[in-house]
Design a protein around this nucleic acid. Structure first.
Lengths: 115, 115
DNA sequence: TGCTTACGTTAGTATCACCTAACAAAACGC
DNA sequence: GCGTTTTGTTAGGTGATACTAACGTAAGCA
């Protein structure tokens, strides 16, 4: 899962993903859309494949790539859980923090063996 | 926006974000939760701050950090648009690809000046 | 003023990511 | 089989990133 997040952090890989999201394309065609060499695209495709975000289908000498929506949905859920959890907890903790406030770090400061 | 995605790609930064999502914490307290030095955390906090994902509040000698839910919501929307658009287009293009299929890359191959 | 605390910043290093150039492998047509 | 096409892989370079160690800075207190 961590691999998937790092994969989409790269802008070029997001473009590749967008390019093959609605159509299968061979590696050469994908590379033709960018100003980089084919080996570079090949590496990006490998990263995306290892992350499970794209599927590879061999046909003759060429290999066709397409995005994997189900795996993308998993990543989406993961991030949504992260955000949603964050937002609900933030709302819940809003007044709690009002009351506790400075108490928290003061308590922490009194622990001697932290630094 | 790109900065925000790269920011959450780092596991340590996601942990920091999770740590200060429901409570304000001073830098030292944040650093105490990890096995790295304070300067390292300081750099991570700067990355998160530059990405707009956390807010800094100075109070005396210490600086309190907290996550910024509205900015996080923006990032969430951005990613959701990316995914949703991807999924709907995938569904729409499913049979279209059945018909077109190989035609696409064959057409492309006939263009001479691509490589 | 002098000391301490909390924190950031700089200098320097090691590792990783992205890229190009050159080589190797698998499938098709002759 | 031989050559071409399409692609992956390896080797190597360059820049970014994550870290530690040392130094500098601002606020509070005696």
């Amino acid at each position: 899962m961590d691999e998937a997040i790092r994969a989409i952090a790269e802008p070029r890989r997001r473009e590749i993903l967008r390019l093959i999201r609605d159509q299968e394309l061979p590696a050469g065609q994908i590379a033709a859309h960018f100003a980089v060499t084919r080996p570079a695209i090949s590496q990006h495709l490998r990263v995306l494949k290892d992350a499970g975000l794209v599927a590879e289908r061999r046909e003759g000498t060429r290999r066709l790539y397409r995005a994997r929506p189900e795996r993308i949905a998993e990543l989406k859920s993961f991030l949504e859980d992260f955000w949603d959890d964050s937002l609900t907890r933030l709302k819940q903790a809003a007044e709690l923090e009002e009351r506790k406030g400075e108490q928290r770090w003061l308590e922490a400061r009194q622990k001697p063996g932290l630094t």
